[in-house]
């Protein structure tokens, strides 16, 4: 397996890890990390593809993704603070008042 495929597998693997974090952990902070992990997995796959296609374009997109990930985590944390103030905890098992 040349490195390209290994790296693809690695990025897919990281992506699934992030998704699993989102699924299994109830702590919103960990879920936030999960999303960040998924975004970084995407960066990795971008880089590997651009290396395979030996174009610079792929790597260029990584910067956009990074900035967006940053913006996203900023907003995510502020929502987290808001949840803590209202629910007194950041566990998602509390946040089920909207239902039906």
């Amino acid at each position: 397996m040349e490195t390209g495929n290994v790296l693809h597998l690695l990025s897919a693997y990281l992506f699934c890890l992030g998704l699993l974090a989102l699924l299994l952990r109830r702590n919103t902070l960990i879920m936030l990390m999960g999303i960040e992990l998924m975004l970084n997995a995407v960066n990795l796959s971008f880089v590997t593809f651009s290396r395979e296609l030996n174009q610079l374009n792929g790597q260029l997109q990584v910067f956009f993704v990074i900035t967006l990930a940053a913006a996203e985590s900023a907003i995510g944390l502020s929502i987290l603070v808001n949840i803590y103030r209202n629910f007194g905890s950041i566990k998602t098992d509390r946040t089920t008042s909207l239902r039906g």
């Binding site: 989102l22 699924l23 109830r26 998602t92 089920t96 239902r99 039906g100």
Partner: peptide, 10 residues
């Protein structure tokens, strides 16, 4: 539709 986040993601 029980409002639980984990259920939605599942």
């Amino acid at each position: 539709q029980n409002g639980d986040l984990q259920a939605f993601t599942l």
